[in-house]
């Protein structure tokens, strides 16, 4: 599945300072659809190069990291259960960096 991932608010520093990543993510075995929970664990292993604790906490993002799926707050689409589709744009923004 082709997805565009964007990291902002300082999170880009955790993945080689690259803000936009065009990626191809395969749904987990035995499942046809890809949900945010799967994507997060994929990002954790494949994109985050350092200090993963700045991004993840448990199986979700660390509190203070905003997530938007196609420019919509993931709190409206079911957070970890949000189903992803081809060409979706997922944005992660940290609110924790200096103001």
């Amino acid at each position: 599945m082709q997805l565009t991932l964007e990291f902002g608010g300082g999170l880009e520093l955790l993945c080689d300072s690259v803000k936009v990543h065009n990626v191809d993510v395969v749904p987990p075995k035995g499942s046809e659809k890809l949900i945010m929970k799967d994507l997060l664990s994929w990002v954790g292993t494949n994109l985050i190069k350092e200090r993963p604790e700045m991004f993840m906490k448990g199986d979700s993002v660390r509190p203070g990291v905003l997530v938007l799926v196609n420019d919509c707050d993931w709190e409206l689409s079911g957070q970890l259960d949000t189903t992803l589709e081809e060409k979706d744009v997922v944005v992660f923004i940290s609110t924790l960096h200096g103001g």
Partner: peptide, 24 residues
């Protein structure tokens, strides 16, 4: 992109204007 993909959480309309898609 967001406009064309309205089905995700798409049913949710803004609780204020009741017209546009809720964004947060």
């Amino acid at each position: 992109v967001a406009e064309s993909k309205s089905k995700k959480a798409g049913g949710r309309l803004c609780s204020t204007c009741n017209q546009r898609k809720a964004a947060l």
